[in-house]
């Protein structure tokens, strides 16, 4: 039966709406794995399988431990899991407005709701992949469990960065059609050029490659927090605040120019 109207504060309404977008993102994940035998288990399985296979191959080259006592498998698995999230954000973002143009131009759905739905879809993939990898890492390296508790802040920075990627890549993608074609190439180059597969210490004179590589640096904030327990709280808070402010302005701009943006890809 229909319930009576509920009075909620602004904050609880916001939380409720975010929960709704999360559920919409989950429906997209459900659709992606519809008719597969393992369903969403594939998210976890694919990351663990990829990390194990690459770990076996590259572990032979770089050794089973790097930079002291960090297990190479843990370093690689976390790198791949986090990188997959960034690469997904870039790829999905670059086509997002083009693919959603019909919805934007024919419904009153806010752009914010459409972006957050896609963002949560990516978050869910990250959380399942990361949870399974963190579980495997615990088996390999039990000492790291203490580092897990301080993951919240670095992970928040990482997620806000991904949401910004989705939004800005989608805007560039609808202005420049060639962009969506370039993105897979760029993500592959960044992946191979960043110390994700190999230890950062191997870069020697080319350390600047990692320093100017913003996606890698954001990735490394989370990876370092787990592997070394090092979290620069001040840096994280400042980046997070800057990211959230940018996000608020971006959402305000998007809503103001909703129609214009959709028509860019007309």
């Amino acid at each position: 039966m229909k319930k009576t109207k509920i009075q909620k504060s602004k904050f609880s309404r916001l939380v409720y709406q975010l929960q709704n977008y999360w559920k919409l993102g989950w429906l997209d994940n459900k659709a992606r794995y519809a008719k597969t035998y393992l369903g969403e288990v594939w998210i976890a399985l694919s990351v663990v399988l990829l990390s194990s296979v690459l770990g076996l191959i590259y572990g032979d080259i770089f050794g089973s431990t790097i930079d002291g006592d960090i297990k190479y498998f843990s370093y690689l698995a976390l790198g791949i899991t986090l990188w997959n999230c960034i690469a997904d954000s870039m790829a999905l973002g670059s086509r997002f407005i083009i693919e959603s143009a019909s919805q934007i131009l024919n419904t009153t759905y806010s752009l914010k709701s459409l972006f957050l739905r896609k963002f949560f879809y990516i978050c869910q993939n990250l959380f399942i992949g990361l949870a399974s990898i963190l579980f495997v890492i615990l088996i390999v390296n039990k000492d790291l469990i203490g580092n897990y508790v301080q993951l919240f802040l670095p992970l928040s920075v990482f997620l806000v960065f991904n949401l910004l990627i989705i939004i800005y890549f989608s805007l560039i993608g609808c202005l420049i059609r060639d962009f969506a074609e370039i993105v897979p190439l760029v993500t592959t180059i960044i992946f191979l050029g960043s110390p994700i597969l190999y230890p950062a210490s191997r870069l020697d004179n080319f350390a600047w490659i990692a320093n100017v590589n913003i996606p890698y640096r954001v990735l490394d904030i989370v990876r370092s927090a787990i592997l070394t327990g090092e979290v620069n709280y001040l840096k994280c808070v400042l980046i997070l605040i800057a990211g959230l402010i940018l996000l608020l302005f971006t959402f305000a701009y998007l809503e103001k120019n909703r129609t214009k943006i959709a028509l860019w890809c007309d």
Binding site: K3, K5, L27, A31
Partner: peptide
């Protein structure tokens, strides 16, 4: 448009409509 993939069922489309429009906030 049903706002969900064609691989999902009508029940999922109903849920998607409910979530997208925030019908819970209207007391439904």
């Amino acid at each position: 448009d049903l706002n969900v993939s064609d691989d999902l069922a009508g029940i999922d489309a109903a849920k998607a409509f409910f979530y997208q429009h925030g019908l819970g906030l209207l007391g439904y």
